[in-house]
Write a protein that binds this DNA or RNA. Sequence first.
DNA 1: ATGTTTCGGGAGAGCGCTCTCCCATGTGTC
DNA 2: GACACATGGGAGAGCGCTCTCCCGAAACAT
Lengths: 339, 339
Amino acid sequence: MGNRGPTLEDVAREAGVSRATVSRVVNGVRNVAPEIQEAVRAAVARTGYAPNQAARSLVTRRTGAVALVLSATGGSFTARLFSDPFFGRVVDGVLPVLRERAVQPVLLVAESEPARLQLVDYLRRGGADGAVVVPLDEEDPLPGMLVAAGLPTVLFGRPRPGVRCGWVDLDNAAGARLAAEHLWASGRRRPATIAAPVSAPTARERLDGFTAALAALGAGPVPVERGRFTEESGRDAMARLLDRHPDIDAVFAANDLMARGACRHLAERGVAVPGSVAVVGFDDSVAARDSAPPLTTVRQPVEEMAAAMTGLLLEQLDAGAPGTGAKVFAPVLVVRESA
Amino acid sequence: MGNRGPTLEDVAREAGVSRATVSRVVNGVRNVAPEIQEAVRAAVARTGYAPNQAARSLVTRRTGAVALVLSATGGSFTARLFSDPFFGRVVDGVLPVLRERAVQPVLLVAESEPARLQLVDYLRRGGADGAVVVPLDEEDPLPGMLVAAGLPTVLFGRPRPGVRCGWVDLDNAAGARLAAEHLWASGRRRPATIAAPVSAPTARERLDGFTAALAALGAGPVPVERGRFTEESGRDAMARLLDRHPDIDAVFAANDLMARGACRHLAERGVAVPGSVAVVGFDDSVAARDSAPPLTTVRQPVEEMAAAMTGLLLEQLDAGAPGTGAKVFAPVLVVRESA
DNA sequence: ATGTTTCGGGAGAGCGCTCTCCCATGTGTC
DNA sequence: GACACATGGGAGAGCGCTCTCCCGAAACAT
């Protein structure tokens, strides 16, 4: 706006000192006599001075803001964004870390391709010093775009191959092991699994982790069917599983939605859950709690991961260059009624 | 970051023209020969130039960004923020308007008092050109702070007295009238209402609108009990209502939560809804759809209001000064099962 | 052929700030 | 008393951009 407020010059005149001195007082004070500091502070208050961030950024090359980017390639994004508590948990993890460092958190949503371009442009121009990115789809091009633009970036989840940036992720294999051990401990000896497309690294880890853990426990070969992370595909996979292996007594699905689909199919077939077949999901999404029965599932420590992600970004900013630091987190088993 | 990319100067050298010409091409082109434009564009592409927003803002006094501020004074804010679809609807209304004008939307959350101060500071320094604010509490001090800082501001909901800024709001009286007429039309002749604290202007409008509409229809005096917008208080108010006026056949609550509380109490007392007593809520929040039975309620055209709010802000920005334009919207009755 | 307008493009002055010099004082040492 | 040496604070050079001038050349009118 044209609201040209008072400038350093004005405050300096008011306080009877030089511009440089006011600047020293306003920022980290270095070698300024206490009485002068007082005079300057008084002048600042009197004039209602607020530093011009543009001018400051021009010389410091810093904005003092960090972007929290929520990106998705699918449609009706905001509806999902503001109904899945997952994002709230991310925000809850990110905010305190930023606040503590007096860095302004700025939420950016990229709900479409044009939005994504505009967003990258904004950040390239210097809209924020770095970005903490939560991509909702594995194929989201945004992380790659940001990294290519030279922006310090940290992802929630592993980056696609070729994209060099920081990230945090869940130890998916460990999560699958938790599920396997829980099922085994509760006496299930013929478990199967509903995996997801091989293209998703996350899904492969969960599958491999599950079979490896069961092998270690002494189980035989584990029947596997693939879904596409949707409830419908989980339902279909369950049907195939049951047709081919009528004796299975447990199912581990690579996400909650598919687990829910599996439950639905089991209910349709009149198979008791967890009586005859136990079901374990993954993610602890809303779907898990709302299912019938409520799903036993593997939960990510989202707040912790988000906080760590933010920490990694701040490290990059302190270092003055994009980095590739990463952290892997341990999952937690949430036992509800389905297993 | 220290990523000092190419500057106008570099591009100018590359293209064999002056800084000014490159600037002309990069921004709205004015009087530049087509072949030179082409040369400049090629140079931009070759160098990977991105304008430095700080430098640009320093002279234009514009950032090209608008803040969408979500503010609340209560605790556990983000949990609420990311589970109530209301905010998703606001965002859905705001984004398209901003995108169309190539203005970068920036979401800011103010979940605590320190956060609020930091946010105002950020905006005063020139973090964005203006703010579209969604205060969740009537007593939220943030709008006042922003207006006092001279920032172009538009509120969702009427500002508190003394705060001069733009706003959009729902015609609450009209909404209450919709409820009254619906109840009357369905044969209810002894309606009561659960109002909210007199301090909330919104609530007063709903109460007055309801009683006025009923008076116009020829109804007798309307029993009134007050709640505090919570489910529990709605339940208690319903209990008092029923104790004092056992013959009532309809209840209009000033929000969905209280309506739900009322339903719960009616169920506890074994009173059929809507059989014996019809219940109408207000807001069409999640609570309305999830209630048993699903609530008939008065809905705000949130997306439309958010879009209008954004339009008002852009008008202020075009005018170059904060303004006080406002718009009032007509509510919509959503008939479900409770009335 | 000269004067007048139009149009394209360059020069250069800032925007408000930070930060590196550098100078003017004090303070300590022999 | 002469020297070194902290220490506080001012001067001024940019940071990268926009935008107002201004000038040269081409197009038109006289």
